[in-house]
Simulated scan of single mutants.
Amino acid sequence: MSDPVPELVEGAVTIHHGDNLDVMSGFPDRSFTLIYLDPPFNTGRAQERAVETARMPGTESTGSSVVRRGFHGRDYERLRGDLRVYDDRFDDYWGFLEPRLAEAWRLLAVDGTLYLHLDYREAHYAKVLLDAIFGRDHFLNELIWAYDYGAKSRRRWPTKHDTILVYVKDPARYWFDSEAVDREPYMAPGLVTPEKAARGKLPTDVWWHTIVPTSGREKTGYPTQKPEGVLRRIVQASSRPGDRVLDPFAGSGTTGAVAAALGREAVLIDSSTAAIDVMTTRMPGAVVRG
């Protein structure tokens, strides 16, 4: 069970309008059982970043900067420098994302799980750096969300998947309930008993799920909206009714809509006025701050 923390919300969903780094810094440690981050896949712009004042486990101070001791004896700054050689866009993007991940890690309960949703351009860099920051033994899964919609390239294999990296705060204490997750059809139902075929199978780490349909109940018009089915699986597996769920890049509010429907308390953050408008229309009973 997670440590008790002060009450954060006044209803099933609270929406904060503001910079997520500023908002998160006001929450107490270990406030959330589940944190889902769906950041811009690559901002393409430099962000000023203050020198960190709080050190994470496995770090040491070296004057004005912090060096994190990573896996295989390599230090964090050297690792990031090596990656910069291969992709000169990456350091700017990580300068934006890194402090937000550090705050999310602080806010994660001892039995909590962090999901980072990225695409193929950044996922491999993020995996190496998250291993260095959080510790390789805290890595739980690489999830592949595969879909088949939109234009198809004829000059390479069409890119039709996202990557979701999953890390747990304590490898011995994290919450995971596979039985609570919606089951899916067998790809070859004739190879199993009729009873098993009727029940469906537990999902693996590859999730086949359509994007949000262009018409239908879910569609909000928000350009980066994620389907409820993907978020439902995450919330079902890694939280319990009554647990708190955080989405710092809330966008269309899918995390909040799903979490509230499943009896969780959701805290959503976004700096975009358009996102706030979409979320308040989608969840008219939400408490809005900022």
Rank of each mutant, 00 (worst) to 15 (best):
P213V: 08
I276F: 00
T273F: 00
T193C: 01
D29C: 05
A172S: 14
R264K: 05
Y93I: 01
L140N: 09
P241F: 12
V258D: 06
V9D: 02
R84Q: 11
V288Q: 11
T220R: 13
Y186E: 00
G263T: 08
A257K: 10
L231S: 05
V230E: 06
M187K: 13
Y167V: 02
A261R: 14
P203S: 10
A237C: 14
A257M: 06
A109S: 15
R240L: 14
P194W: 00
P248R: 06
G18V: 01
D177P: 04
G290Q: 05
F27L: 06
D111M: 13
D177N: 15
M24W: 01
W175S: 12
V267F: 08
L231A: 09
E103N: 09
P248T: 14
T59G: 05
S215Q: 15
L191G: 00
T33M: 04
Q225D: 10
K169Q: 12
M279C: 07
A188S: 08
G63V: 06
D243V: 09
S271K: 11
T163V: 15
V67T: 04
D22W: 03
G251D: 02
L37K: 03
V66D: 11
A274I: 03
V230M: 15
E98Y: 01
D205L: 05
M279D: 00
R282E: 05
D277F: 00
V181A: 05
Q236W: 13
A126R: 04
M24K: 02
G221W: 09
V9I: 14
S31G: 12
L108D: 03
L246V: 02
L79I: 14
A259N: 08
A180Q: 10
H138G: 03
G135M: 09
A260C: 11
S272Y: 01
R282D: 04
D38S: 15
P4S: 09
I276K: 03
L143G: 06
A50M: 07
D75Y: 04
R155C: 01
L107C: 05
R240C: 06
E179P: 00
S2E: 12
E122S: 15
D162H: 15
V9C: 04
G242M: 14
R121I: 09
T220V: 09
D92W: 03
A180T: 12
A274F: 07
A50H: 09
M279Q: 12
Y76P: 02
E179R: 13
H17Y: 06
T254H: 09
G263H: 10
R106G: 02
D270A: 08
S178T: 10
K127Y: 10
T113C: 05
P284A: 04
G95I: 02
D91C: 02
L130I: 12
G242V: 13
P241A: 15
D177H: 10
M24Q: 07
P213Y: 06
H17A: 10
T273D: 13
L116S: 06
P223W: 04
G229I: 03
E48Y: 12
N42V: 10
T33I: 00
T53H: 11
I35F: 07
A260H: 11
R217C: 00
L116C: 10
W157P: 07
T193Q: 01
L37T: 08
L202P: 00
P28D: 05
L8H: 02
V13F: 07
M279A: 03
K226W: 08
A12Q: 06
E179H: 10
L262M: 08
V235F: 08
D137A: 15
K169W: 11
F139A: 14
E103V: 04
N20Y: 09
D148M: 06
R154S: 13
E228W: 03
G221Q: 05
